[in-house]
Design a protein around this nucleic acid. Structure first.
Length: 358
DNA sequence: TATGCGTGGGG
DNA sequence: TCCCCAAGCAT
């Protein structure tokens, strides 16, 4: 009774208890007690982690964050990095436009903001790769400005708390209104991270742990038994399947024939194997021209990979290429300069198939 | 406003 | 084996 009268929808000790546990596995986070002791988060680390966390899980981001901050400890270091180094370090993380915008943003911060992230939501919003969510996250977490974060977690928590049945993305404005109403003036950074943790670990998409939820008392969906069905979402389109061919050519000295993909579009700016266009399986197969003259042999196995919006099947050809041969597509990268980890996952799958075949 | 854009893990 | 989903952004 008393609990309801106090409105437990807030940054309670119970909510902070969960938040504190998660801080240990997130190297970018300053735990609440350290923050109260005066320690403030490094805006560079907050920004970097938030960009990496876009549509990506904490477990996946952790190692990438550690490698990036070890190699480029400050935004100035990152701004000076070579494009290929940053793209290679990002390889495997996906959504590669984030890495291209990461570099643009770092260079803009150095060139236009004296190497310091601006403590201003509307200014942050103008930087490359920083949208409404990330601007609010940096504002609140790094600068303790009271901006409401609305990510997938908060959308779900708000939809359930208020039993909102309007499907996403139409419900976003309403959910944002609810999120703003709950965002406190005191410690908005701790609150933002705590409410996202709540969504990630308790108010989960499937079988939410309502029994241990700090907000179980005021939750309307919990009371009405609708929590597991929320938020509603508009149905998605089915994924088509495309086909293509890649060519893995290697010289006797171990150099691989690779290309840097165009800046725009799928896997933009990433290293990859030369090959054909990727066309829908309902279309006639594309003509494939090998990137260099050699005895190309097709592998028995094919690469299967699923992107956000289509399935892909790749035929793989391999060949030893004579040292005197000039490629008409791509360039040779010496063995000493090539790390398989610099490849996006689909390209790494092709390499692994070729290695298995040898 | 709708679409393009990665990847890995869980149910 | 599939589908769903994750601390979204750009165009």
């Amino acid at each position: 009774m008393r609990e309801k009268a106090q409105n437990p929808v807030t940054l309670s000790d119970e909510l902070l208890g969960w938040y504190d546990i998660h801080a240990r596995i997130m190297p970018w986070r300053v735990p609440p007690q350290n923050r109260r002791a005066g320690q403030t988060p490094d805006p560079y680390r907050v920004w970097l982690s938030e960009v990496m966390l876009q549509q990506t899980t904490v477990v996946t981001v952790r190692d990438y964050f550690e490698r990036f901050t070890a190699r480029w400890p400050t935004v100035t270091d990152l701004a000076r990095a070579r494009d290929a180094d940053v793209m290679g370090e990002w390889a495997g993380l996906g959504y590669y436009a984030r890495a291209r915008n990461l570099l643009k943003c770092a260079r803009a911060v150095v060139a236009d903001h004296d190497g310091a992230f601006p403590a201003d939501h509307s200014v942050l919003l103008k930087l490359p790769g920083i949208g409404p969510y990330t601007a609010a996250a940096i504002s609140s977490i790094a600068f303790d400005l009271p901006h409401a974060v609305l990510d997938g977690n908060v959308e779900r928590v708000m939809a359930r708390l208020h039993d909102i049945h309007t499907p996403l993305p139409d419900a976003k404005p309403l959910l944002m209104t609810q999120a703003e109403a709950l965002t406190p003036q005191q410690r908005p950074g701790d609150y933002a991270q705590a409410v996202m943790d709540l969504g990630a670990t308790i108010c989960t998409p499937k079988s939410p742990a309502c029994g241990i939820c700090p907000w179980r008392a005021p939750c309307l969906a919990r009371a009405r038994g609708t929590a597991a069905d929320l938020p509603r979402k508009t149905p998605k389109k089915p994924k088509p399947t495309r086909r293509g061919t890649v060519y893995l050519g290697q010289r006797e000295d171990g150099a691989w024939l690779l290309e840097t993909r165009p800046e725009k579009g799928l896997l933009g700016g990433m290293l990859g194997w030369p090959g054909s266009e990727w066309v829908d399986i309902t279309q006639p197969p594309p003509q494939t021209t090998p990137p260099a003259d050699a005895q190309w042999v097709q592998l028995n196995a094919e690469v299967r990979h699923t992107f956000t919006h289509f399935h892909l099947t790749l035929a793989v050809f391999t060949a030893q290429i004579d040292p005197s041969t000039e490629p008409h597509q791509g360039r040779f990268i010496p063995r000493s300069e090539f790390r398989p980890s610099d490849l996006p996952t689909v390209m790494r799958k092709a390499l692994n198939l070729a290695k298995d075949a040898l």
